[in-house]
Write a protein that binds this DNA or RNA. Structure first.
Lengths: 135, 135
DNA sequence: CTTGACCCTATAGTTGCTATAGACCGTAGG
DNA sequence: CCTACGGTCTATAGCAACTATAGGGTCAAG
């Protein structure tokens, strides 16, 4: 076995990925099924390590697994236009920005609601509940 | 049957909730099992409508179903201190605020990555992919 | 009396993992 | 050589919070 062969645990440690997650990525086709050792252990090479690193980085950036799949497929096809990659990124960025504004108005409303809190009172005169359920 | 009896579809329309979701809330104990009509249809009264409205409002505010459960339980116990309600709200607000800052740095990074896009090029010289997988 | 809209139950799917059970492999110590 | 241990294997079930589907029953209008 070549020196750069990694067992699944090694790969996990090298990428900060749990073993079960790696197997999960394999099951859903994000990682190719690797060769097996005599004892039926998965053995990974440097390419697998790089691919998993890429996947994890994408996940850190908040891309969905489907988007990661697309990015991987694009990355392997040097002739496709770079604009396709940018489109995925831009779509994701727009999603993130929309989420931010949604959460900002949410936070605003929660602050407003929380501000109505009747210090040491009881539920019977809780104005927060009134604020949640205006009726 | 009293005039304020609602079928599940009516309740759904009145609260903007899908029928399956209402049944789901019942199954997980968020809504009590209502009376049934002769034909075995669920029949809801005004109290159920109010309770579901409260649940939906909480969900709109981003509370988890467990938090909603707690809020409902608090709301029904007039002797408990209002501070408990505020604590749930404050915790949730902190969550939301943390999510916002997380997403903001994410958006920042995505903008940075997207800005590297090599306009009309192909994947072979795609700098976005390089930016995602710096190596 | 049939059509259509509604309702019923039960089960499986979604996303992205995580957890568990029960078995096998490989190496180091006694 | 045996045993203990840590790692690995498969398969299955669980998490949030629903959504979707299958295969039926109910009810009012035409």
């Amino acid at each position: 076995m070549p020196r750069d062969d990694l067992k699944i645990g090694d790969l996990g440690r090298a990428t900060g990925t749990k073993v079960v997650t790696i197997r999960y990525y394999e099951k859903i086709g994000l990682l190719p099924a690797p060769d097996r050792s005599v004892g039926n252990y998965r053995t990974y090479d440097a390419a697998a390590l790089e691919r998993l690193r890429f996947i994890r980085r994408c996940r850190d950036l908040g891309f969905s697994l489907d988007q990661v799949r697309e990015l991987l497929s694009l990355a392997s096809d040097v002739a496709r236009p770079c604009a396709e990659v940018d489109k995925i990124t831009a779509t994701h960025l727009a999603d993130v920005e929309r989420k931010i504004t949604d959460l900002q108005s949410l936070a605003q409303e929660l602050r407003r609601i929380s501000a109505t809190c009747n210090g040491g009172g009881t539920i019977s005169n809780c104005r927060i509940l009134d604020a949640i359920a205006p009726d």
